[in-house]
Design a protein around this nucleic acid. Structure first.
Lengths: 344, 344
DNA sequence: GACGTCCGTCGAAGCGCTTCGACTTGTCGC
DNA sequence: GCGACAAGTCGAAGCGCTTCGACGGACGTC
């Protein structure tokens, strides 16, 4: 047991000396890029442990031209969807670690310049972009960036990009189909806040189109409207909606923040759930399970999406071909908030 | 306009050549660590822009022994508090960028080994640790790590550490004082889920102690109990609580997820807010404003806490002395959910 | 007018790692 | 028993940057 050379950091040279081999040999043991004899490998690994060696990330990045870091770009405007975004972020980190990568958290508030900086400085090998809008200013940049990237969500023009997302169009359909089977004929979609549609956020538009199309196919009467967040706004919206469409027997809610208020308000308007009106949510399972009654829902499988995104990015980093679009099939979980429409 | 040398990356040598100076001069222009004449500086900066130069992060880190990156360590168990955690994270990123630092997102699921790896590999210069528990296994590690760190939250033994947080003890007091002024005598604290107390999470315990102490000081009758999340659980909890303590005229709710259900449930139990019972929330302003009625609340100033944490860390990186504890004063915003108790 | 003093700039030496020949053995085929 | 070849290891050359000491010239001083 020598006293450690530098108090600051154990280098590969220290390990080499301790194990009685060349520095390059240590490197090859650690990377596995050349054959090393069993005995040497073990000796080296023992020294690594004995000295508590961790390769210097900067030096490694410089020499190998790989930082082993990916960027996760989040929207700064964190308005809605916060828990889902969080779930994504955590899952991206966990997935990346499985591939021995770390995650640099980047917000969009620096704008394209921020992305450019991160990419050009070789801080990261690849980029995962969240909360993509239909017409996203960061997207053209991505194409010219010369670093592989994966988008969570679909922009209007996805040519040349790799995108992953829940199939929201299908999700809209699935909700309608479930209600159709139960016998509902008059349904409504309570969507995201108007601002989200205006912003051209893909999932909101795609859910609506799936919803509308499936309703038409089943000969149902369907209305859709944006819904603001907040208990008071939800109550007001519901009153107006039921006033204009008193025969509605089912609602699809795509707005996490509105789920609770909707369920709380309906009974006060004389509509029991599910006897008088059925409710389907497009929201995380946690919300659905905590609601009362427990909500029939289509969750956004954040973890699965994140895992896929990271896996795709890793493939691209290895120059393997990947599919341009990955759409995850929605699963609808039936709980206590949906039933057949009232007899009348 | 030369054609760019390497398609891959513009180096400092390219800039130097383009500007007709030495590489070191470019470096000094960019870092400002030595005097450079106005004319040279401008020529260099022009070349930097013309070539679109961005320093290679790895090389810079290697040579300067500063990565210009800080680690943000989040709990993996993201159970409650998700929006607040998210707010913290975003604010940490934004604040760090002001100091020209980036943020590496780390989860606790690798355990101490993960922290050790990050620190030893010199990937980050410092660490911000969130969601600290009273007896946190990562804390002892932090002391031996030789990288500066700042905690958001307080462990039981904070010796030798730098901690920032809302003064939850005071927050509990402030809520009580507001209710005392209105004339309430019988109050209750609806706390975090039992698991959070069991885990020894500091803010929950400290709020409770502040609440209890202030109530005693004002001669009020005070009960406290953990509250689970979920609409049904809240309803059940409220029913039991009001059953045992029918004279309660005010509630303090420290559980974001319970705020909505509490407000929705009380009227169904024949208690109007605020005429029959007042409610104070300890929750983000967004929740309070979206509630109906709008909630008198003490927000957790996530952005301010994050900003402080980053600023403290930057001071430590510059070897400046910093206070061991930074407690932010709570502000109570009066809205529509509190009033004098009913006359009877 | 000779001498210290700055100011502004340069060249070179690393930072700790990966990677590319090249070299030394041992092994096999015939 | 000799060439061919593979397996295992080493040394050295960078990767792109920062930083230190040195150096030339402009300036002020006595």
């Amino acid at each position: 047991m020598d006293p450690v050379k530098s108090p600051d950091q154990v280098t590969i040279a220290d390990v080499a000396r301790h194990a009685g081999v060349a520095g390059s040999t240590v490197s090859y043991v650690l990377s596995g890029k050349r054959a090393i004899s069993e005995v040497t490998r073990n000796r080296v690994l023992a020294s690594v442990r004995a000295l508590g060696y961790h390769p210097n990330a900067g030096a490694r990045a410089l020499a190998s031209r790989r930082a082993n870091v990916i960027a996760l770009v989040l929207p700064l405007r964190s308005g809605m969807q916060v828990p889902v975004v969080m779930q994504f972020a955590m899952a991206v980190v966990t997935s990346a670690r499985r591939f021995d990568h770390d995650v640099l958290l980047v917000t969009s508030d620096e704008g394209p310049a921020g992305l450019r900086r991160i990419a050009a400085s070789a801080m990261v090998d690849g980029i995962v972009l969240m909360d993509v809008e239909l017409d996203d200013s960061r997207v053209p940049l991505l194409r010219e960036l010369a670093r592989p990237s994966v988008l969570i969500g679909f922009p209007a023009d996805a040519a040349g990009l790799t995108c992953v997302d829940l199939d929201f169009h299908r999700a809209g359909q699935v909700c309608v189909e479930h209600l159709a089977e139960l016998g509902h004929r008059q349904i409504a979609l309570l969507g995201a806040p108007a601002a989200v549609y205006d912003r051209g956020t893909g999932f909101a538009h795609r859910t609506r189109s799936g919803f509308t199309e499936a309703a038409a196919r089943h000969g149902m009467t369907a209305v859709t409207r944006p819904f603001e967040e907040g208990a008071a706004a939800v109550r007001q919206g519901l009153i107006e909606l039921l006033d204009h469409h008193p025969d509605l027997s089912a609602l699809v809610v795509q707005n996490e923040a509105a789920v609770g208020p909707v369920l709380a308000t309906l009974p006060t308007l004389g509509r029991r759930v599910p006897q008088d009106v059925s409710v389907v949510g497009i929201c995380p399972d946690r919300f659905a399970e905590q609601a009362s009654p427990m909500l029939t829902s289509v969750p956004v499988p954040a973890e699965e999406v994140a895992r896929q995104a990271v896996a795709l990015l890793m493939s691209k980093l290895r120059d393997e071909p990947v599919p341009a679009a990955t759409l995850l099939g929605p699963r609808l979980t039936v709980r206590d908030s949906t039933a057949a429409p009232p007899a009348g």
